[in-house]
Design a protein around this nucleic acid. Sequence first.
DNA 1: TATTGTTATACTCTATAACTATA
DNA 2: TATAGTTATAGAGTATAACAATA
Lengths: 177, 177
Amino acid sequence: MDDAGPAHSGRFTPLAAPGGGGDAPDLDILGDTIGFYIRVLDLAVSRDLDRRLDGLEVARGKGKITSLLLIDRHPGIRPSELADRTLKDRAQIARIIEGFIAHGLVERRTADDDSRAADLRVTAKGAALATRVRQTITAQDRAFFAPLIAGEDRQRLIALLRRAYLGLLAREGGIGA
Amino acid sequence: MDDAGPAHSGRFTPLAAPGGGGDAPDLDILGDTIGFYIRVLDLAVSRDLDRRLDGLEVARGKGKITSLLLIDRHPGIRPSELADRTLKDRAQIARIIEGFIAHGLVERRTADDDSRAADLRVTAKGAALATRVRQTITAQDRAFFAPLIAGEDRQRLIALLRRAYLGLLAREGGIGA
DNA sequence: TATTGTTATACTCTATAACTATA
DNA sequence: TATAGTTATAGAGTATAACAATA
């Protein structure tokens, strides 16, 4: 409160250096919650991903990507299963699939064992796109987070996030048990 | 592949128990990326938060919450500074502020030292709401994540996320450093 | 000429309800 | 009656461009 000249506007106490001693002053607002960081990081990483996927036919919006990759990885997957995995509702999934089909990325048939259910699989075009998307995302994720967290810490972060995600699926989707 | 009867649809390999040995089979899709978990967790935690904030005047959508809390915590903050902190653009911030003012939560004056700039502060009503929102969010975050990650692991996760967030602010906003 | 803030537009995501067809 | 999928609507977030006022 006495030195450390203002770096940006002079109105905020400057943030402490990440490696430094004290906490960042502004984080007392919601800094003891996981959700706060999740929300801000999601905004930043998804925005950056949108840019790097630009022109790839599933570009705008992060919502469709996981669905395409899941269909690619699990031929015959059903819409309701997609909804479970992605934590979206069936209505959303239906429109996403409609978009995939309109772009010639996915095919839909009636399931053999249940006339109500649909059977989804990627086309050759969809498979090619899925491969490119997967490569792009993997590269983007590394490039985006590398300057922020690296080495062992990166692995620890992934492990912790994965545990939370798995707990979430078990709780919300009833998958796996 | 031989036992572990299908719990949901029978089409997926069941997920491994979070504490168990192997990785969850489906996570090889994007499981080595931080962004994948961030995106899914954000969807789930924000959806849950929306429900718990229902009726609180900033209910729908997570976008306004941090802005209100920042104005509450930093009287006199300017829109451009809000944009930096929340990683949103100025146009968005302008509409959010407009909404706050329309609801009598925030007041806006012209800044003393710069006629272009605005000077934001919460009203008594806005301050009261900010307090309630902060309490609600803190409680929600604990309730939501407690079953998923607890104790030391929770603290480690927060520390890692915070480090990434601070790095992000330094990189994108030009704040601090 | 650059910056602060605003307005306007278009697209995407999300929630919700209602509907069909099958089981 | 319950489930799988679809359709439709409304509200909210985001990106982008264009603009006025001031520095």
